[in-house]
């Protein structure tokens, strides 16, 4: 029997994503959490941004051209470092972007590439997600519903056939 719920397990290559900085001294590092490989930690360092809100994005091409999808906002510490947890939902090479969230606070930003690999889980899901009670009746349910739909269509066609086939033949029937 199939697992009730598929959980995306993210495994990552050793080490963090390759950091790239757009501003002077800015950097973004992506790494899996030590005890929970399904979650990533994004650590941004934007010098001179102490106390400023920092916005994290993942770049998506889901809707045509590349767009930055917001992940969240974190406040930079005194050393200009901000971090956020993120659970990716699809695999492949992904680009992350970080920049200061408030408009007019400069063009400091950084990007990082990271290859996310998703795989189906092992026994992890069994305990946390009990099987759904109706999960095993899918085929029976489908057959029953489709049969009902087919019967309705059949009865409608029969009604039409009676209307345009039998009714004219009753034109000469005796009055009761």
């Amino acid at each position: 029997m199939r697992r009730a719920l598929l959980l995306i397990l993210v495994t990552a290559a050793l080490g963090g994503g390759s950091p790239a900085a757009a501003g002077s001294g800015s950097s973004l590092t992506v790494a899996p959490k030590p005890r929970d490989p399904t979650r990533l930690t994004l650590v941004a360092h934007l010098p001179g941004s102490a106390g400023e809100p920092v916005a994290f994005f993942v770049v998506s091409k889901e809707f045509g051209s590349a767009r930055k999808v917001p992940i969240g906002v974190a406040t930079a510490g005194a050393d200009g470092t901000a971090h956020i947890a993120y659970t990716p939902t699809w695999s492949g090479a992904q680009q992350f972007v970080v920049k200061l969230a408030r408009p007019g606070t400069g063009a400091r930003s950084a990007t990082a590439e990271y290859r996310v690999t998703a795989s189906t889980p092992g026994p992890l899901s069994a305990g946390a997600n009990p099987p759904r009670p109706l999960a095993s009746v899918g085929h029976v349910f489908l057959t029953v519903i489709l049969t009902i739909v087919a019967l309705i269509w059949l009865s409608l066609f029969i009604t039409l056939a009676l209307a345009f086939g039998r009714l004219p033949r009753l034109a000469g029937a005796h009055r009761h």
């Binding site: 009865s155 209307a163 009714l167 004219p168 009753l170 034109a171 029937a173 009761h176």
Partner: peptide, 28 residues
């Protein structure tokens, strides 16, 4: 309306079919 002569037999059949559809249309 091909062949409709308004005979009792025709009316009866039409009534039955309309009644059947009236029942069917609500759950649909």
């Amino acid at each position: 309306s091909r062949g409709w002569r308004d005979t009792p037999a025709q009316r009866r059949l039409l009534r039955r079919m309309t009644g059947f559809l009236a029942v069917l249309i609500i759950p649909l």
